[in-house]
């Protein structure tokens, strides 16, 4: 409801943003699709030729792809599991009457503000290092053999780092949702004699369902593209043990200079992300109505 003049103005004002985003999306994506149909290697310039779906065939039948796909799914799934369960527990704890809540809150959200390269290196060198890391010292003090994390459990190590970074995000959002739980509902449940566990499963968890969905979707989008943590800790190795799709595409493009193959991989990554995005857009779109 507005006047014709303001409707017109509204469109004019929104146009630049829409235009640049459209170009940003369509031009590189179009180029990626085009490259993915070419034989195109930066080490062999001038010999580009159209080869149709061959890059896709190579990329999708390459065992490395399946390893990377498996790693990607394992990484996303594990981090989601750890951060959601951990996040709910932390949120429940933070919702209790505690002294110094403000300070504890700052402690808990701090990891989210640490740039990925810093958190990865701090974990790798200060905590998980097999000789001088703090974990090694704890293991030795307790009489165990120190673990060489990045050699023996490389993917788990990456998962641990990424989960540490995303736990605050989950906890913060779940806490916000938890605090919006109607106080009278709690009191009504108390009057009805509902025990703490029933209260959690029948009232709190359903109330959190929406926030949990939001956390899952947003984290998934970012976790599908985890890159820096792998780049600075393992470089995708040992072997392909910590190579996810994002890193595989990067390696193909900027380490092997195979533009065609990397583009095909990029398109595969886009397709995967779009499956998640479709759910996400629907969820947020619903909220937009309200």
């Amino acid at each position: 409801m507005a006047t014709r003049q303001s409707t017109f103005l509204g469109r004019i004002l929104a146009a630049p943003s829409i235009l640049v985003l459209f170009l940003w999306m369509i031009v590189p994506l179009g180029m990626t699709i085009w490259f993915s149909l070419l034989r195109y290697n930066l080490l062999d310039p001038g010999n580009e030729s159209f080869i149709g779906a061959l890059n896709y065939e190579y990329f999708l039948t390459d065992p490395a792809f399946f390893t990377a796909l498996g790693n990607t799914l394992l990484l996303v799934g594990s981090v989601l599991l750890i951060t959601i369960v951990g996040g709910i527990l932390v949120a429940l704890l933070m919702d209790q009457p505690i002294f110094g809540q403000g300070v504890v809150r700052l402690f808990i959200i701090a990891p989210f503000f640490v740039m990925p390269t810093v958190s990865a290196l701090v974990w790798k060198n200060l905590l998980m290092h097999p000789v001088s890391g703090l974990f090694a010292w704890i293991a030795t003090s307790l009489g165990f053999q120190p673990v060489d994390w990045f050699s023996n459990a490389p993917l788990f190590s990456v998962i641990l780092i990424v989960a540490w970074q995303w736990l605050p995000f989950a906890a913060l959002i779940l806490l916000t949702a938890l605090q919006s739980l109607d106080g009278e509902q709690k009191e009504a449940a108390q009057m009805d004699g509902v025990g703490p566990f029933s209260f959690f499963f029948y009232i709190v968890l359903p109330h959190l369902a929406r926030a949990i969905t939001v956390v899952i979707l947003i984290e998934t989008i970012f976790l599908l593209s985890v890159f820096a943590e792998i780049f600075v800790t393992t470089g995708g190795g040992p072997g392909l043990a910590t190579t996810n799709i994002a890193f595989l595409v990067y390696a193909q493009a900027l380490l092997q200079y195979d533009v065609g193959g990397a583009s095909a991989g990029g398109i595969v990554a886009v397709v995967l992300a779009n499956i998640v995005a479709a759910f996400m857009v629907r969820l947020i779109g619903k909220n937009l109505e309200a």
């Binding site: 994506l29 990626t32 533009v259 398109i267 990554a269 992300a273 779009n274």
Partner: peptide, 13 residues
């Protein structure tokens, strides 16, 4: 939805 496009998808171009 443009934000949801993974950066590797457009890294090469």
């Amino acid at each position: 939805s443009t934000k949801m496009m993974p950066p590797v998808g457009v890294l090469v171009p």
